[in-house]
Amino acid sequence: MGFKLLSKLLVYLTASIMAIASPLAFSVDSSGEYPTVSEIPVGEVRLYQIADGVWSHIATQSFDGAVYPSNGLIVRDGDELLLIDTAWGAKNTAALLAEIEKQIGLPVTRAVSTHFHDDRVGGVDVLRAAGVATYASPSTRRLAEVEGNEIPTHSLEGLSSSGDAVRFGPVELFYPGAAHSTDNLIVYVPSASVLYGGCAIYELSRTSAGNVADADLAEWPTSIERIQQHYPEAQFVIPGHGLPGGLDLLKHTTNVVKAHTNRSVVE
């Protein structure tokens, strides 16, 4: 069995187990497998329904001669939608809004960016022009300005110390501490036991640490421990890039980060 097929099978099995364990909360999309990078042309966006009122959005972007996937989250909030992270750029984010209108038909009224990198804030200006209120932590807003990236308009308070959590509509926002970046936030959907790890969490097929220019490698494993301790009931975990899975993604990420750190020390 090929690795790609095995990865998709694991996603399907995880979703099936969740649907059985929580039949009222989960209505997993039966329309197909989780979209992969090879299936999404740059400039297009796919939506994948995880649970009743919960979707991931998947886009792709060219970077350094390669094409990478990027995940975000959409959560229903009454007759409105909360968006977590842009679709990595203005063109993708405009396509995301169009796809949401086509498939869901509810307005996106608020959006949260989970850290300051372009795959999370690139497209904020498109959201703002569409009347979406954009939010991020003060740290993310400051770092985005320093980096020359787009800056969300509103500040999220109460997320300055490791372990801080605040309720934001249908989700809980959690600051686990520094990891992929010093400002990275985690998003949890309690009604569906869905954990969105953003770039602080890796997919299972990833074996290298990737972009760690703004990471705190020493603190990252401790931050992941905080996530595990705060959300032990999480059933569906979405990484910032690639295929979702279960809580095993947290341990896998820790292993990859520690291996990278150990290699760096040896070198």
Rank of each mutant, 00 (worst) to 15 (best):
G169V: 03
T109R: 12
L82I: 10
G169F: 14
Y12H: 03
I58S: 13
D77N: 02
F26A: 12
N92D: 08
A234D: 02
Q235W: 05
Y68H: 14
K251F: 02
M1I: 11
V237S: 08
P69A: 13
A133Y: 09
R167A: 04
L81K: 01
Y12K: 15
E219D: 14
Q61S: 11
D29W: 06
E203V: 02
H115V: 00
V146A: 09
S38I: 09
H260E: 07
R120L: 01
Q229Y: 04
A25L: 09
A259F: 11
P176N: 01
K251R: 06
G177D: 00
H260R: 06
E150D: 14
Q229R: 08
V54D: 00
S191D: 07
T182Q: 06
E233V: 09
P221Q: 09
P35D: 04
G122P: 02
S208P: 10
I84D: 00
S137Q: 07
R46V: 14
P239K: 01
Y231N: 14
D85M: 00
I151A: 06
A192T: 08
L249R: 01
Y188Q: 09
Y202R: 12
E147S: 10
V256M: 04
A129V: 05
R110T: 14
Y12I: 15
L13C: 13
T109G: 11
S181D: 00
D52H: 03
H154K: 14
D164N: 14
A66F: 13
L106D: 06
S223H: 06
T86E: 01
T93S: 11
K91Q: 13
E99C: 02
H252L: 12
V166C: 08
L47H: 02
D52A: 05
A87K: 00
L82E: 08
L156W: 12
L6V: 09
P221G: 11
H252A: 08
D52K: 05
Y12T: 14
E44C: 13
G246P: 03
S162K: 06
L5K: 10
A165L: 12
P244L: 05
D85W: 00
D216S: 10
F26R: 11
H57I: 15
S161C: 06
D248P: 05
A94E: 08
A179P: 00
L5F: 02
T153H: 02
E39S: 10
Y135H: 04
P152N: 04
E33V: 09
